[in-house]
C-alpha cells in the first residue's frame, strides 16, 4: 500500500474512530448503563455525569501517560540498569561512568553557556524589536519578517547559517558573508569559523537566537501594548525621557511576561538538538547534552549512560516545571 494512501486511511480511521468512540461510549452510558428513566432516574443522571468526564478524557490520558509520563519513569529505571548485563540493577554506575567522560562535562558546560546566552539575547532583541516596531507605520510588516525564522526548521536554519559561515581557500572569492566581511575588515586569511572552539558554540547559539527572537518579540509586543497609557503619560508629564519611560515604567510592568518568555526559550535551549547535530555534530567542543544523549543512545548503543544524560536534562527542566505548575495553580484559584 502506498504510504500516502496509508496516511489518508489513517486520518479517516483515526478521526472516524475517535468520533465513533466518543459517540458510542456516551450513548452506551446514557441509553444502557444509566438511563435517565425509571425509578432511579435522578441517581442515574448523577452517576452518568460522574463517569462522563472520564470518557471524554480517556484517550488523551492514555496517550499522555504512555508517551510522556511512563517514559520518565522508564528512563529513570534504565539509567540505573545495565543493558549488557541483561538489565541488572547497577545503582549509580552509569552516572559515575558519565561523570568520568570529558565529553559529558564539555556538553554540560556548553549547555550552561547556551542557557545563559540564548534566552538573554533572544529576549533582549525581542524586546528591542517589539519596542521599535510598535512605533512605526510599517511595524506589522517588520514584525512578520523578524518572526519568519520561527517557521524555518532547525535543519533549514543550519543550512542557511552554514552558508554564512562558509570558508573558501584564500586565493578564491569568499562565498560566506562572515569571511567576506572578516577579510574586508583586514583579516589576513579566511577562518574555518565552526572549528574554532568557544566561538563556534557562540555561532551555533546565534542560529537559535535568530529563530527565537521573533517569538520573544510577538509576546513582548502584546505585553507592551497592554500597559495602561496613564502610567506612561504621567511619567512623560513628570519629565521622563523616552529611555526612562522604557526602563523605569514599561519594563517593570511587563516583568512577568519577560519571565515567561525567558523560561519558554530556556526549555527550547535545553532540548536543542537539530542545530548541533546538523552543523558540527558535537565536534570541535560544541557538544550539548541532547546531542550527547543521541550519540550515546544510537551510536554507542549505551542505553544506561544515554538514559542517565536524559535524566540530567530532565533535572535541569524540573525547576521550570515546578514553577509553571505553581503559577498555573495560583491562576486557577
Amino acid at each position: 500500500m502506498h504510504p500516502a494512501f496509508q496516511g489518508l486511511l489513517t486520518v479517516v480511521i483515526g478521526v472516524g474512530g475517535c468520533l465513533a468512540y466518543y459517540y458510542f461510549s456516551n450513548a452506551f452510558l446514557d441509553k444502557v448503563l444509566f438511563p435517565p428513566r425509571g425509578k432511579n432516574a435522578g441517581r442515574n443522571i448523577n452517576r452518568a455525569n460522574m463517569i462522563r468526564p472520564w470518557l471524554f478524557l480517556a484517550p488523551a490520558l492514555i496517550a499522555l501517560g504512555l508517551y510522556l509520563a511512563y517514559p520518565v519513569v522508564e528512563t529513570l529505571r534504565l539509567s540505573l540498569t545495565d543493558r549488557s548485563q541483561g538489565g541488572a540493577f547497577v545503582g549509580l554506575a552509569n552516572y559515575s561512568q558519565m561523570a568520568s567522560e570529558p565529553k559529558f562535562w564539555e556538553a554540560l558546560t556548553n549547555n550552561f553557556l547556551w542557557l545563559l546566552i540564548v534566552p538573554a539575547f533572544s529576549t533582549m532583541f525581542g524586546l528591542l524589536a517589539a519596542q521599535l516596531t510598535d512605533r512605526i507605520g510599517w511595524g506589522a510588516i517588520a514584525k512578520s519578517l523578524i518572526f519568519m525564522p520561527m517557521a524555518i526548521s532547525f535543519v533549514g536554519a543550519a543550512v542557511i547559517w552554514k552558508l554564512v559561515y562558509d570558508t573558501r581557500p584564500i586565493d578564491q572569492d569568499q562565498i560566506g558573508v562572515m569571511n567576506a566581511i572578516y577579510l574586508s575588515l583586514g583579516g589576513d586569511e579566511p577562518q574555518q569559523w565552526l572549528t574554532i572552539p568557544f566561538w563556534n558554540s557562540i555561532l551555533l547559539m546565534l542560529v537559535l537566537i535568530w529563530i527565537q527572537t521573533g517569538f520573544a518579540m510577538v509576546i513582548l509586543s502584546a505585553a507592551l501594548r497592554g500597559i495602561p497609557e496613564e502610567t506612561i503619560e504621567a511619567a512623560i508629564v513628570d519629565g521622563a525621557n523616552p529611555f526612562q519611560v522604557f526602563f523605569k515604567i514599561k519594563i517593570p510592568q511587563i516583568a512577568s511576561t519577560i519571565v515567561v518568555v525567558w523560561t519558554t526559550i530556556t526549555i527550547v535551549v535545553l532540548k536543542v538538538f537539530d542545530i548541533v547535530f546538523a552543523m558540527t555534530n558535537g565536534q570541535w567542543e560544541t557538544q550539548v547534552l541532547a546531542n550527547y544523549m543521541y550519540d550515546k543512545l544510537f551510536r554507542a548503543n549505551d542505553w544506561g549512560v544515554g538514559s542517565a544524560s536524559a535524566m540530567v536534562i530532565m533535572l535541569l527542566v524540573s525547576p521550570i516545571l515546578v514553577w509553571n505548575v505553581y503559577n498555573a495553580r495560583k491562576e486557577m484559584r
Binding site: L68, P71, T75, K271, A290, L297, W303, A310, M314, L321
Partner: peptide, 12 residues
C-alpha cells in the same frame, strides 16, 4: 507534561 523533554521518551 508541557515541558517534559521528548528526549526522555525515545528509548522507552
Amino acid at each position: 507534561l508541557l515541558v517534559v523533554p521528548l528526549q526522555l521518551a525515545l528509548i522507552p
